[in-house]
Design a binder for these strands. Structure first.
Lengths: 357, 357
DNA sequence: TTGAAAGCGCTAACAG
DNA sequence: CTGTTAGCGCTTTCAA
């Protein structure tokens, strides 16, 4: 700030207008009495610089308020220090905490996050990856709607990590619903329910398949009947159709692919004069904003979704730093938990109840 | 794809590993039989290239699947084709549609959006702007928590556009609550309410001041009493304190700074056995996700927030292209509208009602 | 209208 | 451990 104000040096850049203000590595080098490469190393490879030199350089840089130019860093190194995060629906509250977790972790590591909303479209998703290819160092694909093949293709040219999706050879962070689905089924069984309906979500959703599978197995163990309905759009707007089908199915308890759909079902029941949980019990996946204040408050299977977002970014950063991601891809699995609220209760006419009856 | 596969040319780059694959402008130039600068111009300054040359170059580029390297574009030109969007709380549903509107508009114009969550912290907000300074072409600051002075300072070194904030000399897109606040007050007056309480939000929030001001004036016109309480944290967690204060104030109708807070108030009333709207009427600003299915559904003042996001990006792009933003800063104002639901009703004991009584 | 050439600010061999 | 030297891929004068 004191002597080498932006543009004050008639140095090597000559008369050419240097993009608005801003101190370069050369200004720092000159002021510190070292070569530009030493300044560069002091930041990028500190271990290769004498500690005293490094400290001096950093002090000078600080004093000059030096900020590296991201484009200039990226050009020779190919590293942008930017990560891409793709989500299928940015307006779904489920993704809020995922985004926040990812963003915190990224910025803590000095990375910038580019968020992109693919609006449930597989082609938009693929196109976005291709467009951002050179602009980011890697991608996190949350709840990808792409086929496994397409994901593998993209993974050949891009470093990527999946969230809530498993594809052989691609690292991932997933919330495992298996245990909590079993708990949910046990909860319903203990309330006397014998017949369950699952309201399916988008066909390309891996979670959708995982949830149904876990539900089917748990039901079988408990000797309950489980039917699969749908698929329905994973929004509140999917509620009416899903609710009507569920009611028609004769099930006494309904488990929806996600809480958005479950809330839609709740509203449809209210409109039709069907009481929850007296006439029918409703539960859903994803403990989103609103699940606790809809009416009645919704029993859900909750994902530790902020941790999942964080973990995915960690995985990605690991691949980026560790020998350019050639390592065996690994995955992290985080357990979900059951949140019982008021939308589930005794099966109508069912006699066997829990002791708290 | 046919003859100049990535790295197939032993050209000027020599043996140095070219960052993974990818066709450069030189590959296109060679294949098209023109100079690299002509390829560059064919995209960036098409009007300065013979139409036939341009078309040919583009065809070749297409065929080779050429993608410009963003860092390389940014370095000499200083333009990154990236925009920064800062929001105070990414988990507040209010911002979802704003983000979606901004993102759509940005990507339609070929820009990438970098989203940053400032978590209600003015210092984080300022720091983020400074860090992203060279990484983006301009910023949209949504509901900024910075002081007017700090905003002006930042506006000196950065191109920026505000959302829901007015600062002289800085362009902005704002949702105007004035008319709809008046409508809300009239609605309450017609239900017999004489005494209103406003539950204030964050002091640095401009909307907060605007809302109170509009409310105060409208109340005065209608000869109602209005008291201002708070400030309260603009989350559901602020509900209990706000509700207790409101109830204690003797007001029969309560207007909360935002819907998050209003929903928190609703819950507190339920816990305390106070009936809404029989004992007290509740309304809030921002027609967020959940406002229509909380219980009772909330009367709100709704912002056309997706349009506001879109408009802000338009303004920013305008400044970016039109002579580098030297133009007189202009602002757009979008009107809000009132959504009456079940959380507002007759004043307790009030006799004068609306004709629909 | 086009080509040649000079960088943008930084990183990364390679010497020393 | 540090300096010198080439570029990274693109844009932008400047001439032709």
């Amino acid at each position: 700030m004191t002597e080498v104000g932006a543009g004050s040096s008639p140095g090597p850049a000559g008369r050419r207008r240097r993009p608005p203000s801003d101190v370069t590595i050369h200004d720092v080098a000159r002021a510190a009495g070292v070569a530009a490469s030493t300044v560069s190393r002091s930041f990028g490879r500190p271990e290769r610089v004498n500690i005293r030199t490094r400290e001096h350089v950093r002090a000078v840089a600080e004093q000059l308020n030096y900020r590296p130019n991201p484009a200039a860093r990226a050009l020779p190194s190919g590293r942008t220090y930017t990560l891409g995060l793709l989500v299928p629906d940015i307006t779904n509250p489920f993704f809020f905490d995922l985004i926040r977790g990812a963003e915190r972790q990224a910025s803590a590591a000095g990375y910038t996050l580019v968020l992109s909303d693919t609006e449930e479209s597989p082609s938009r998703e693929a196109r976005t990856v291709e467009q951002l290819h050179r602009a980011v160092d890697g991608f996190v694909l949350a709840s990808s709607r792409l086929s496994a093949d397409r994901i593998r293709q993209l993974a050949a040219d891009n470093i990527l990590v999946l969230i809530n999706r498993r594809v052989a050879g691609v690292p991932c962070a997933v919330a495992d619903n298996t245990d909590s689905t079993r708990q949910l089924v046990e909860h319903l069984a203990s309330l006397g329910h014998r017949r369950l309906a699952y309201l399916g979500g988008p066909r390309p959703s891996w979670s959708n398949a995982q949830r149904w599978e876990a539900l089917r197995e748990a039901a079988q163990e408990k000797e309950l009947t489980a039917v699969r309905l749908g698929p329905y759009p994973p929004f509140m707007a999917g509620g009416p159709a899903a609710a009507d089908a569920a009611i028609g199915s004769g099930a006494t308890a309904v488990i929806a692919f996600n809480a958005l759909l479950a809330i839609g079902v709740l509203r449809r029941c209210a409109d039709r004069g069907i009481r929850v949980p007296e006439d029918i019990s409703i539960a859903g996946y994803d403990d989103i904003f609103g699940a606790d204040f809809c009416s009645p408050p919704l029993t859900t299977v909750a994902s530790p979704i902020q941790d999942v977002g964080r973990a995915a970014v960690d995985l990605l950063l690991g691949r980026l730093t560790t020998h350019q991601g050639r390592r065996e891809p690994h995955g992290v699995t985080l357990p979900c938990y059951l949140r019982i609220r008021d939308s589930t209760g005794r099966a109508p006419g069912g006699e066997r109840g829990d002791p708290a009856g």
